Simulated assay, not measured.
Amino acid sequence: MTNPIEAAESASNALTAQGRILESIDQYYADNCVFIEPDGASRTSKDAERAHLEGFFASLKSFESATLHGQAVGDNFSASEWTFKMTAGDGSPIIWHETLVRTWQDGKIVSEKYYTQA
């Protein structure tokens, strides 16, 4: 039997890998989800994160890929390692190597913290 968090994590990650990040947020994140950036900045709702990402994506020339390198799932916990490749509005490349650590409650993500990698 598949762990329900593992199934939801895999489905959320599949949407992200397809570039459908906003859909993943809509489906898998709690309304009061807290998003924490590597510098400690945070957003305290799904709506705030969605607005933040809509603005960011609008500033891009293109979003090339989101590559999932691996994921791990535990009790009300998941983590996934990613490489995101994009092109900024000015044409410069953006490459992010991130690990996303998530806490789950009642089948929804209630917190997500981003860790950047060199």
Rank of each mutant, 00 (worst) to 15 (best):
M1L: 02
M1Y: 05
T2N: 07
N3F: 05
P4Y: 11
P4S: 08
A8I: 00
A8N: 15
E9H: 09
S10W: 08
A11R: 05
L15I: 06
L15F: 11
Q18L: 08
G19F: 12
G19Q: 05
I21K: 01
I21S: 00
I21M: 12
I21V: 15
L22I: 01
L22H: 01
S24G: 15
I25T: 00
D26H: 09
D26M: 06
Q27G: 02
Q27F: 06
Y28R: 01
Y29P: 10
A30E: 07
D31C: 02
N32C: 01
I36H: 06
E37W: 03
P38H: 11
D39S: 15
D39A: 09
D39V: 03
R43E: 10
T44I: 08
T44M: 07
S45L: 01
K46P: 14
K46Q: 15
D47T: 13
A48P: 14
A48R: 08
E49K: 10
R50Y: 12
H52I: 01
H52M: 04
H52G: 04
L53T: 06
S59W: 04
K61W: 05
K61E: 12
K61V: 02
S62Q: 09
S62R: 15
F63R: 14
E64P: 00
A66V: 10
L68D: 10
G74D: 12
D75N: 13
D75V: 14
D75S: 12
N76L: 01
S78N: 04
S80Q: 12
S80K: 08
S80V: 08
W82L: 09
T83M: 00
T83C: 03
T83Y: 04
K85V: 13
K85I: 09
M86A: 11
M86K: 05
T87G: 00
A88I: 07
A88Y: 07
G89F: 06
D90P: 07
G91E: 14
G91A: 11
S92I: 06
P93D: 03
P93C: 02
P93L: 03
I94T: 03
I94H: 02
W96K: 11
H97C: 10
L100D: 12
V101N: 10
V101S: 08
R102N: 15
R102Q: 15
T103P: 02
W104I: 04
W104G: 05
Q105I: 10
Q105A: 15
D106F: 05
G107K: 06
G107A: 07
K108P: 08
I109W: 01
I109N: 00
S111Q: 14
E112L: 14
E112D: 10
E112A: 05
Y115Q: 12
Q117S: 09
Q117M: 01
A118E: 14
